[in-house]
């Protein structure tokens, strides 16, 4: 696949999202966030700043939380993407409900995804690690205590291990290719 320098050129790409292969027409300059929302109808990831500051658009790419406003859609080709829509009935979601860990709900998909990704990577994180991961996102409604309680109740419950999102296949994340490599 050849990419011209014209950012308005449309191309067809395949993405693997929530375990399904989807095909969509995009501009090469399109953000992953906008493709998810506008092309694929996956509006769980929210725009909050388009600047990487707030984390409301967080998705999981190859088991790592990524801000989808900082990714071009073409960077997600051949990667395993999980959005909040691919995460049904996870323990962390139940604990968010039990602990009232949301109010307006706008930042919630982002916080659920970053918490879930943390538990996938480290089922028993220490306090410093939790702060490091969760401070990537902003919640303006709660005082964060409820989110903290929701997360720690999963950690204490020891349910974190079985928490792989539905349909997520373990990726070979070690493979590093340059951007054109990913596209070819």
């Amino acid at each position: 696949m050849k990419i011209s320098k014209d950012t308005y050129q449309k191309i067809t790409i395949k993405l693997k999202i929530n375990g399904e292969i989807v095909e969509t027409d995009i501009h090469v300059s399109d953000l992953l966030l906008n493709v998810l929302r506008d092309k694929l109808g996956l509006t769980g990831a929210k725009p909050g700043c388009l600047n990487g500051d707030c984390g409301a658009c967080t998705v999981i790419m190859n088991q790592k939380p990524m801000k989808s406003c900082l990714l071009l859609a073409i960077e997600a080709i051949r990667e395993e993407i999980t959005t909040i829509e691919g995460l049904l009935n996870s323990t962390i979601q139940k604990e968010f409900v039990n602990h009232f860990a949301f109010q307006c709900g706008y930042c919630t998909p982002g916080f659920v995804m970053v918490s879930h990704a943390l538990l996938m990577n480290d089922p028993n994180p220490d306090k410093k690690t939790v702060i490091e991961w969760l401070s990537s996102n902003i919640c303006r409604c709660t005082g964060y205590q409820e989110i903290e309680k929701a997360l720690y109740s999963v950690i204490k419950g020891g349910n974190a291990c079985g928490l792989k999102p539905k349909n997520t296949v373990k990726s070979n994340g070690a493979k590093k290719t340059d951007e054109t490599g990913r596209l070819n």
């Binding site: 109808g41 996956l42 509006t43 709900g105 706008y106 919630t108």
Partner: peptide, 23 residues
């Protein structure tokens, strides 16, 4: 009583719709 919020599940699953989600 601390009953669960009526908007809980739609909010933790990303199904909750806000104005900007309409397309």
């Amino acid at each position: 009583k601390s009953v669960a919020r009526k908007d809980a599940w739609e909010k933790v699953t990303g199904q909750a719709k806000y104005t900007g989600d309409s397309q």
